[in-house]
Protein backbone atom coordinates (compact mmCIF):
# COMPACT_ATOMS: atom_id res chain seq x y z
CA UNK A 1 0.00 0.00 0.00
CA UNK A 2 3.00 2.30 0.18
CA UNK A 3 3.72 2.42 -3.50
CA UNK A 4 2.82 5.34 -5.72
CA UNK A 5 1.74 4.27 -9.19
CA UNK A 6 2.10 6.70 -12.10
CA UNK A 7 -1.02 7.26 -14.18
CA UNK A 8 -1.98 9.63 -16.98
CA UNK A 9 -5.06 11.82 -16.72
CA UNK A 10 -7.50 10.90 -19.48
CA UNK A 11 -10.61 12.82 -18.52
CA UNK A 12 -12.04 14.92 -15.72
CA UNK A 13 -15.31 13.72 -14.27
CA UNK A 14 -18.02 15.25 -12.16
CA UNK A 15 -16.62 18.27 -10.36
CA UNK A 16 -18.05 18.02 -6.86
CA UNK A 17 -16.33 14.78 -5.95
CA UNK A 18 -13.13 15.77 -7.72
CA UNK A 19 -12.67 12.67 -9.78
CA UNK A 20 -10.63 11.98 -12.88
CA UNK A 21 -10.18 8.97 -15.09
CA UNK A 22 -6.54 7.93 -15.34
CA UNK A 23 -4.77 5.36 -17.40
CA UNK A 24 -2.31 3.05 -15.64
CA UNK A 25 -0.44 0.65 -17.90
CA UNK A 26 -3.31 0.65 -20.36
CA UNK A 27 -6.08 0.18 -17.81
CA UNK A 28 -8.44 3.01 -16.97
CA UNK A 29 -9.65 3.65 -13.43
CA UNK A 30 -11.17 6.57 -11.59
CA UNK A 31 -9.14 8.35 -8.92
CA UNK A 32 -9.73 11.32 -6.67
CA UNK A 33 -7.77 14.47 -7.49
CA UNK A 34 -8.90 16.52 -4.51
CA UNK A 35 -5.40 16.63 -3.03
CA UNK A 36 -4.17 18.46 -6.13
CA UNK A 37 -6.73 21.24 -5.93
CA UNK A 38 -3.97 23.87 -5.82
CA UNK A 39 -2.19 22.34 -8.80
CA UNK A 40 -2.82 23.03 -12.49
CA UNK A 41 -3.86 19.70 -13.87
CA UNK A 42 -4.73 19.01 -17.51
CA UNK A 43 -5.69 15.99 -19.55
CA UNK A 44 -2.46 14.23 -20.55
CA UNK A 45 -0.66 15.13 -17.30
CA UNK A 46 0.94 12.41 -15.18
CA UNK A 47 0.18 11.91 -11.51
CA UNK A 48 1.44 9.60 -8.78
CA UNK A 49 -1.50 7.60 -7.41
CA UNK A 50 -1.68 6.29 -3.87
CA UNK A 51 -4.71 4.43 -2.45
CA UNK A 52 -7.03 5.91 -5.07
CA UNK A 53 -5.85 9.51 -4.75
CA UNK A 54 -3.55 11.50 -7.00
CA UNK A 55 -0.72 12.56 -4.64
CA UNK A 56 1.44 14.69 -6.87
CA UNK A 57 1.81 15.81 -10.44
CA UNK A 58 4.94 14.45 -12.07
CA UNK A 59 6.44 14.90 -15.52
CA UNK A 60 6.50 12.26 -18.19
CA UNK A 61 10.13 11.30 -17.56
CA UNK A 62 9.52 10.81 -13.88
CA UNK A 63 6.47 8.72 -14.66
CA UNK A 64 8.50 6.49 -16.97
CA UNK A 65 11.25 6.15 -14.35
CA UNK A 66 8.79 5.40 -11.60
CA UNK A 67 7.07 2.77 -13.71
CA UNK A 68 10.37 1.15 -14.68
CA UNK A 69 11.50 0.89 -11.08
CA UNK A 70 8.10 -0.39 -9.95
CA UNK A 71 8.25 -3.11 -12.58
CA UNK A 72 11.53 -4.23 -11.06
CA UNK A 73 9.85 -4.64 -7.70
CA UNK A 74 8.14 -7.76 -8.99
CA UNK A 75 5.50 -9.16 -6.70
CA UNK A 76 4.98 -6.02 -4.63
CA UNK A 77 4.09 -4.08 -7.77
CA UNK A 78 1.90 -6.84 -9.19
CA UNK A 79 -0.08 -6.89 -5.98
CA UNK A 80 -0.43 -3.12 -5.97
CA UNK A 81 -1.62 -3.14 -9.60
CA UNK A 82 -4.11 -5.90 -8.90
CA UNK A 83 -5.40 -3.92 -5.95
CA UNK A 84 -5.65 -0.82 -8.13
CA UNK A 85 -7.57 -2.71 -10.79
CA UNK A 86 -9.97 -4.03 -8.17
CA UNK A 87 -10.88 -0.47 -7.25
CA UNK A 88 -14.41 0.57 -8.09
CA UNK A 89 -14.41 4.26 -7.31
CA UNK A 90 -17.15 5.81 -9.44
CA UNK A 91 -18.69 9.20 -9.86
CA UNK A 92 -21.91 8.03 -8.20
CA UNK A 93 -20.26 7.65 -4.80
CA UNK A 94 -22.74 10.03 -3.20
CA UNK A 95 -25.46 8.82 -0.88
CA UNK A 96 -28.97 8.35 -2.10
Amino acid sequence: MCLGIPGQVVEFLEVSDQLARVDVSGVGRIVNIGLLEDVDLAVGDWVLIHVGFAMSKIDEDEAALALASLQLMGRAFDEELEAFWSSRITNEAGGR
Binding site: N32, V51, G52, A83, S87, R88, I89, T90, A93
Partner: peptide, 8 residues
Protein backbone atom coordinates in the same frame (compact mmCIF):
# COMPACT_ATOMS: atom_id res chain seq x y z
CA UNK B 1 -7.62 -0.61 -2.47
CA UNK B 2 -8.82 2.78 -1.31
CA UNK B 3 -10.86 4.30 1.52
CA UNK B 4 -13.16 5.50 -1.26
CA UNK B 5 -13.86 1.86 -2.11
CA UNK B 6 -14.90 1.35 1.50
CA UNK B 7 -17.17 4.38 1.30
CA UNK B 8 -18.70 3.00 -1.85
Amino acid sequence: YSPLDALR
